[in-house]
């Protein structure tokens, strides 16, 4: 048994990843790094699905496939947006672009 852990440990891994993702999402000012953080969060969710799938049945695993596909799409669109963003504003720091302000 190379890798042996109970569900709490796996969930702790998942939550840690989620925490790091949230930390990155909230603290980074570069769009690309925020995308990294989003991917981390999605992976944390995926891990959760896989863990519970291992515990019960195959549903979560199948759902994780969809999530991966969706995440890939999201990354593609997000990076396209990043490029447009860069062309439009000359930088990729969303905090400086305050068009959404009141």
């Amino acid at each position: 048994m190379l890798l042996e852990a109970d569900v709490h440990a796996y969930l702790f891994l998942s939550f840690s990843l989620l925490a790091v993702g949230v930390y990155g999402l909230l603290s980074r000012r570069s769009v690309i790094r925020m995308l990294f953080a989003v991917e981390m969060i999605i992976n944390a969710a995926n891990l959760n699905l896989a863990i519970f799938s291992a515990q019960r049945n195959v549903d979560g695993e199948i759902f994780a496939f969809f999530t991966i596909g969706l995440a890939a799409l999201e990354a593609a669109v997000g990076l396209a947006i990043v490029i447009v963003f860069y062309k439009r504003f000359g930088e990729v720091i969303p905090s400086k672009i305050r068009n959404l302000r009141w």
């Binding site: 949230v22 999402l25 909230l26 603290s27 000012r29 969303p94 905090s95 672009i97 305050r98 068009n99 959404l100 302000r101 009141w102």
Partner: peptide, 16 residues
């Protein structure tokens, strides 16, 4: 309205 800074990160903070 001070909440509405226009900064995406702030919105994300509120969201979390």
């Amino acid at each position: 309205r001070k909440i509405q800074t226009g900064d995406v990160i702030d919105y994300l903070t509120y969201f979390v």
